[in-house]
Design a protein around this nucleic acid. Structure first.
Lengths: 225, 225
DNA sequence: GCGCTGACTTGTACACCGTTCAAATAGACA
DNA sequence: TGTCTATTTGAACGGTGTACAAGTCAGCGC
């Protein structure tokens, strides 16, 4: 048994914890080293670079998303569960969407997730490239919603005083546009615009629209072959 | 007339050019200063900070998006045009989505855009918070698609040699999952999964789904009040 | 038990980054 | 011409990610 030595897994775990707790901006190798009780540069023997570590952390998140079997729940329920599961994961780990556009991340976790996404839409009746398009459409929809949430999280983390100023500024700008002003005046409307509500509505609408595009199936009754 | 001195507009212009040409990673104050023929720190008299500058650049992009009048084209065409216009802008300026999640950006340009989005969905027949949800759903859908494109752009920029290695690695991983492997073997399918295709399909499906949720309208013939 | 070996860790150092600030500069106006 | 004020400059600071040579320590053959 070697002396208690660092592990890739250990490092990735600590990285995720740190990222979740303090945000992407405050995530640095020195801080991570301190949390692990090691020198700042000890991790480089195990991970190669900070970007590699981020990719590893991202893939870990991906592999933790539940993959419901469409044969059991039906494709639509499976699609909904996958989408909401992904949304929840990305909301829990905002740094993932924040880095998604700048990092090259493709590991087993994401592959597993992608493959299952295709399985769901193939089970629905989409063939070949259509399954790809459907899966990608829903995936990117979730991604965009999570990005909006991440932006809000970032704002909230920026200390109370700074946030109050930005908010006041935003209100002053919004007041110059009629519909935004109306929403400022009736706070109920603003509350209704919570990201979760838009996500749910959008997801259902999107799945409805996809379902309507499904090639004709043999069902109890079908109009065309 | 003062000597030819720097301007906020000038700086923002140069920043956008630099960001578009070299990407977010290679965008630094010193490089920007060199491009402007000024000292690296000259910009700080005009903009406050790098993040401020990015927010300014982002808002500039936002204000350049065309806002079609739903009263002229019909709400659905207006919604489609807005979404595709936004998609095009975000694809042209990938750094915008890359920073969207980490930056606090809310200026007149975005307000203008948001307000018009609400106008479109109110014209469609959504009231109050429902218009908010519909507009947000479509907006975030576009955002997510653009983020996917940004990720691809980043990958493409990372030099040919590095890209070839990453691609080979990705193929090795994908080969372990049946549906991804099938797509590797028939490159036609992979071509069909182009982001633009998924965007178009998803947008139409989403708008279909939203349209179906519209409260009953007085139309030539309507089944229910 | 000893010393070798190779896996891991450490500290130092480097280049670069965003940003601060006092000093220099140069147009405008008296 | 001299002064004022708006702008620019260059040097410097603390921070970052990372390379690298030197150190440390478990395990193993003798």
């Amino acid at each position: 048994m070697p002396r208690d030595t660092l592990t890739r897994e250990q490092i990735v775990d600590a990285a995720i914890e740190l990222l979740d707790a303090r945000g992407l901006d405050d995530f640095g190798m020195r801080t991570l080293g301190k949390r692990l009780g090691s020198a700042a540069t000890a991790m480089y023997w195990h991970v190669g670079s900070k970007d590699d570590l981020l990719a590893l952390a991202a893939d870990r998140v991906w592999s933790e998303i539940a993959l419901p079997d469409p044969a059991v729940t039906g494709w639509r329920a499976a699609a909904t569960q996958m989408a909401t599961g992904l949304y929840a994961a990305l909301t829990r780990h905002p740094w993932l969407v924040q880095t998604f556009g700048s990092l090259v991340l493709y590991g087993p976790g994401k592959a597993r997730h992608d493959d299952h996404g295709l399985a769901v839409y193939e089970a629905a009746g989409f063939a070949g490239a259509d399954a790809d398009r459907a899966a990608t459409a829903v995936f990117t929809f979730v991604l965009g919603n999570a990005l909006g949430v991440a932006a809000a999280t970032t704002l909230a983390r920026r200390g109370k005083t700074g946030m109050r100023a930005t908010l006041a500024n935003a209100k002053a700008i919004a007041a110059q546009y009629p519909r935004l002003r109306a929403r400022l005046e009736t706070p109920a409307a603003r509350h209704g615009a919570s990201p979760a509500g838009a996500f749910q509505l959008g997801l259902e609408a999107l799945l409805d629209g996809l379902e309507a595009r499904l090639p004709a199936r043999r069902k109890p009754a079908s109009r065309r072959a």
